[in-house]
Design a protein around this nucleic acid. Structure first.
Lengths: 250, 250
DNA sequence: GCCGCTATCCCGGAAAAGGGGGATATCAGC
DNA sequence: GCTGATATCCCCCTTTTCCGGGATAGCGGC
């Protein structure tokens, strides 16, 4: 089968998943087709503390997963750290060229190998403002890295993570309860609020009166069903009305 | 040629680029092979203000690029905002389902069409702590979207952005190295601030006095060099100290 | 033992935000 | 011509934040 056909089939497989279990089954199949044994689709958080709110699917050996969770490795795992310095998938063997590996990192990697984990390929999945995440594929120690499949693994990782985001948060769903749109002026004001300006300062910048700014901010808050400017900023950042790039310009 | 061969050729093409001009030439070739006419590989910043420190390569019509830069659209462009809410490439036609489009957004899209830009496909490229970026491919209005090439376009976009990062990294990175760490209690307070609680409410929740909360909030603000609780929330969200998942979790 | 960091609590004044109440003008759509 | 949405401006009052001061106590490192 050609690569395009495989890519589309992976996409449809993971997009058809209606539950995390579905997705896990789909990923197990995809992983096998890619020439890997293990997959891990996860947010980089303390998975025990996050309790179901964070993405977490894998078919790693249970023993390894337990050790991993018990030591909150989701936060310090060098594979995850490396995935924070690139937007492209990478082989674990090249991690050392991406981030400095500490003694603890090397111990962890050695321990993983002892428990049967060999080389792997990790696709970063970073969405601004959300927990960082990734999709990894790995093999038992000794099995060769399926080099020819890496472009497909990159695609599969992205598709899988988006499918997981859809299942976990409902975001990315392509038919929606649409978030309340703000008027241009309300967005202007929300932007300045997000930059920490007072109503008076925003008024100077926009060349209007303080009361008008306060009015726009209040109405923007109403649309988002909140009563604090801080929450307005959080909501607008979350729904994409504002971005960090907007807030930090200049 | 098979899809895998094309993907690898794209990868080698962009990785072989030694200068931005090389990369632009490589991208022009890739774009054509993908069935598109235009590409834009860019950080989402005020490109005139960023002056060479930000990635910016494209072959859009000059007239459009000038208008775009003059109006600092790199920051408010709905295509860019949409690329901040996903990690997967998307067609511009599905943007309305991803983010709320304001009147200004619709005006901008109409203007683009008038200047010959039709539908496009944008690959987000987000690396935590760096400016958000993306790689877009677009066609003249009227030309069909090359659906079969979209998986390849996704890969090409990622490869290209990483190649650009490699080229630009030598000329100054866009990140500050060390986000100020908060103490546990400061983080607790920042979290409650991000949930819109007043100091008094946070005090009730944490079982301490209002003044103590105010003190933690103030010190957390100091560490981030800000003087408003709204900015504290923005900063902690940006640097990953807090995530939306934290804020919305109950 | 001292120092720095953390966490806790307290005060007071100035500034800002939050939540009411109004008003007028424009513009698009029916 | 009316209606609704938008944008603008004004007043008042309460609550909250912001920014100076303070103080005490535990804990870990040098």
């Amino acid at each position: 089968m050609g690569m395009h056909a495989m890519a589309m089939r992976f996409l449809h497989l993971v997009e058809a998943s209606a539950t995390p279990d579905d997705l896990a089954a789909a990923m197990a199949a995809v992983t096998e087709e890619l020439g890997f044994q293990y997959f891990a689709l996860t947010h980089h958080v303390d998975i025990l503390a996050a309790r179901g709110t964070a993405i977490r699917l894998h078919n790693y050996p249970a023993q390894w997963a337990d050790y991993y969770d018990a030591n909150v490795l989701g936060l310090s795992d060098p594979v995850h750290r490396a995935s924070h310095v690139t937007s492209k998938g990478f082989c674990w063997s090249s991690m050392a060229m991406m981030i400095p590996l500490t003694a603890a990192d090397l111990r962890l990697l050695r321990l993983g190998r002892e428990q049967g984990l060999g080389d792997g390929f990790t696709v970063p999945a970073n969405v601004p403002g959300e927990a960082r995440g990734s999709c990894s594929f790995a093999n038992q120690a000794g099995r060769p890295m399926p080099e020819l499949m890496l472009p497909l693994a990159q695609l599969a990782g992205i598709f899988a993570f988006e499918a997981a985001r859809r299942l976990w948060t409902g975001r990315g769903r392509l038919q929606d309860p649409r978030p309340p749109a703000l008027t241009d002026r309300q967005r202007d004001c929300a932007l300045l609020v997000g930059r920490g300006k007072s109503d008076w300062e925003a008024a100077q910048i926009l060349g209007i009166s303080e009361e008008t700014v306060a009015c726009h901010v209040r109405q923007a808050c109403e649309r988002h069903g909140v009563n604090k400017r801080t929450l307005l900023v959080v909501q607008t950042l979350f729904d994409g009305t504002l971005t960090f790039t907007d807030l930090f310009r200049r």
